[in-house]
Simulated assay, not measured.
Amino acid sequence: MAPGRLDRWLDGFGERHGTVRYDVTPATVTLTAEDGSTAVITVPFEPLAELTREGLVAHVLADRRLGVLLVRRGGYGAGVFAGGKLLDSKVGSRHVQGTTKAGGWSQQRYARRRDNQAREAFAAATEVAVRILAPARLDVLVCGGDRRAVDTVLEDPRLKELAGLVRSPFLGVPDPKQKVLEQAGVDAQAIRIEIDQTESV
């Protein structure tokens, strides 16, 4: 759900199910309605400082400089978002050879080549992160793609401060292209709600 829809959705939940009790923590907000319906909202970019409904709405609508880092063996992307707009970005791809059914020395040679290609791809992703994300004065960083690949990129000492800004969710994405990166920026800010079977978003 888009952040701008949350306040109205909360009103609607009460209208449909009766008086709502809010149990608020820095990480989750649980709604329990008069008819027994429940909904659990995961706080984006936790922790939530003001533990009220109003605090939650203000938190999700707050202006932030959001960084997105996507890394897979076949490609990478980095973007800076603010106010729902993409301010700066770079995507790229590197060829990483697939697996082979050959055995023996041939298989080992392919494996070494594939590992070398992967290292080159991750090094390219690291340089893009250093150039696009590191100087961007980010408030939060959301990552996606392959966890091991992302971890490899963030291990670079030049990205030490960025690593401390990482927040959930971890996004599952195909090989990053420009449209994939743009959608990742939207998905990173989406409100996630777990609802019972009587309620729908």
Rank of each mutant, 00 (worst) to 15 (best):
A2V: 13
A2S: 11
A2P: 07
P3I: 12
G4N: 10
R5S: 06
D7S: 15
W9F: 15
W9Q: 05
G12M: 12
G12K: 14
G12D: 15
F13I: 05
F13T: 07
R16K: 11
R16L: 08
T19F: 03
T19I: 03
R21H: 11
D23R: 01
T25R: 09
P26F: 06
P26L: 09
P26M: 06
A27Q: 10
V29W: 10
T30C: 04
L31D: 05
T32S: 09
D35E: 07
S37Q: 09
A39D: 03
I41W: 02
T42W: 04
T42F: 04
V43W: 02
P44K: 12
F45W: 04
F45Q: 00
P47A: 01
A49K: 13
E50N: 06
T52L: 01
E54K: 05
E54I: 01
E54R: 04
G55Y: 02
L56A: 05
V57C: 04
V60Q: 10
L61K: 11
D63V: 11
R64M: 06
R65T: 13
R65H: 01
V68P: 00
G74D: 09
G75E: 05
G75P: 07
G77Y: 03
A82M: 14
K90Q: 14
K90N: 04
G92I: 11
G92W: 10
G92K: 11
S93I: 00
G98S: 15
G98M: 11
T100R: 06
K101T: 15
K101G: 15
A102L: 06
W105V: 14
S106F: 14
Q107W: 10
Y110T: 07
A111W: 13
A111G: 01
A111Q: 15
R113Q: 13
D115V: 13
D115G: 05
R119H: 10
R119V: 10
E120A: 14
A121C: 04
A124T: 13
E127H: 06
V128L: 06
A129G: 10
V130Y: 07
R131Y: 02
R131S: 13
L133S: 07
P135I: 10
L138T: 07
L138F: 11
L138C: 08
D139M: 06
V140W: 12
V142L: 08
V142W: 04
C143Q: 01
G145I: 07
D146S: 09
A149M: 06
A149C: 13
D151P: 02
D151M: 08
D151T: 15
D151W: 11
V153N: 01
E155I: 05
D156W: 08
R158N: 03
A163C: 02
A163R: 15
G164L: 10
L165V: 01
L165M: 05
V166Y: 08
V166S: 07
R167I: 02
P174A: 07
D175R: 09
D175I: 13
P176L: 02
Q178Y: 10
K179Y: 10
L181Y: 07
L181D: 08
L181F: 12
G185R: 13
A190W: 06
A190R: 14
I193D: 00
D196Q: 06
Q197G: 13
T198P: 00
